[in-house]
Amino acid sequence: MREIKFRAWDKSRKEMEYINNMYWFEENGVDDINNNVFLDFMQYTGLKDKNGKEIYEGDEVELNDFDSLRTGGHTEDNILQGEVSFSCGAWIVITERGHYDLYNALVNDEEFEIIGNIYENPELINQEK
């Protein structure tokens, strides 16, 4: 079973909070997660990058698009950058060239790596290599 964890971007303090248990909400006075104006919540995907770093919604990642149809069987590098998101029941990476299934991207790319997140590294958003 996948471990359920969250992190939250504290808008007032401009720092990331990691939430490893449900008591965190009570301890920090969060009554309604959906109507909280001070925190943006992100869920842990249950997956880790090449460095063993946990991948959360909102992470900016680099991946190599190993598409054998595109490369004719050759393994030419096509480095993409994108944001991890949850859509239509699956974790995906949204890039300027399309959407990629997160799990398949990890399986097919041993160099898959988190390079930042949308809050602490806004300059990475929509930036292609």
Rank of each mutant, 00 (worst) to 15 (best):
R2I: 13
E3A: 13
E3T: 15
K5A: 14
R7I: 03
W9T: 06
K11E: 03
S12L: 12
S12W: 00
R13G: 00
E15W: 03
M16N: 02
I19T: 01
E27K: 13
E27V: 03
E27S: 09
N28L: 05
G29M: 03
D31P: 08
D31M: 12
N35S: 12
N36L: 04
L39V: 04
G46D: 06
D49R: 02
K50Y: 05
N51D: 13
I55E: 01
I55H: 07
G58T: 08
G58Y: 01
D59I: 03
V61E: 04
F66N: 07
L69Y: 04
T75A: 10
E76L: 04
N78I: 07
I79N: 10
L80M: 12
L80I: 08
G82T: 02
E83S: 15
V84L: 09
S85A: 14
F86L: 05
S87Y: 09
A90L: 05
W91P: 04
E96P: 05
R97Q: 11
A105D: 10
L106E: 06
N108W: 00
E113R: 11
I115F: 02
I118L: 11
Y119A: 08
Y119E: 09
N126K: 06
N126P: 04
Q127L: 15
K129M: 08
K129A: 09
